[in-house]
Design a protein around this nucleic acid. Structure first.
Lengths: 122, 122
DNA sequence: TTCGTTGTACTACTACAATAATACAACACT
DNA sequence: AGTGTTGTATTATTGTAGTAGTACAACGAA
């Protein structure tokens, strides 16, 4: 099943975002073996090189650890995962507020709009 | 004074976003002459071709009108500007909620985070 | 040992955004 | 008439993202 991508951020970043969330959510548990580059690339229907770049991003964040040619493993450091979870939210909030202000939208107004939008969704 | 750009969205889109907001906010009043392509390009410190593309976007939205070789003019249709104002907010809210869900952030949680973030800002 | 899988590295190619440097016709103004 | 500004179009170049295809050394297991 090919993953779906959207927006204008680079594909590697979008893939890293998704895998990071899966790690944070425990889809790939702490210390467990991580799927192979080629397997993930096939699943996501992207080029192995693209997937590789995404995994390198997660390595640089300490979420993944490469064991030479034995494959990758999810970190066993609960602190790293916990920090990643916090950072994802903090970064997103910061980005969102900044973008909103650039569009002339006040944060309070944005919150109201979000609530109204969600209320009108099934 | 060169404008500042950030993020990974195309430059033309970012320029269009800024000019759209300026039109909505009345920086360029309804029916007024719009600055020349070259002048805007110089001000923003981008290539005239890039600025041209951004202006074409705003034309396609009906916010700008080209008068042949006499220059551009801001639309005199208040309805168009009003609709643009609404659409900017709606689109942003929609985009924000979708991105948040992709990161595993619930909209309500996001609203709280936004409030807390803004309270901690000067 | 042999085979398959692992991560990694490399080059080449395409697509696109942005820049650069012009060129041109239409219009306003002196 | 002549000059300058307007929007528009064209061609070439650069940089980056992604794809495609291949290659290689290290390791595990049969």
């Amino acid at each position: 099943m090919a993953w779906k991508f959207e927006g204008n951020s680079p594909l590697t970043v979008q893939i890293a975002d998704r895998l990071r969330r899966d790690i944070i959510d425990g889809v790939y548990p702490m210390g467990s073996d991580f799927p192979a580059v080629r397997a993930l690339a096939y699943e996501a229907a992207v080029n192995p090189n693209t997937m590789q770049k995404a995994l390198v991003i997660l390595e640089s964040e300490g979420l993944l650890i490469t064991h030479g040619t034995t494959g990758r493993v999810v970190t066993t450091d609960a602190e790293v995962i916990s920090l990643a979870r916090v950072r994802v939210r903090e970064d997103f909030v910061k980005k969102t507020v900044n973008e909103a202000l650039l569009l002339g939208i006040e944060p309070e107004q944005l919150c109201e709009d979000i609530r109204r939008y969600c209320d009108n969704q099934p």
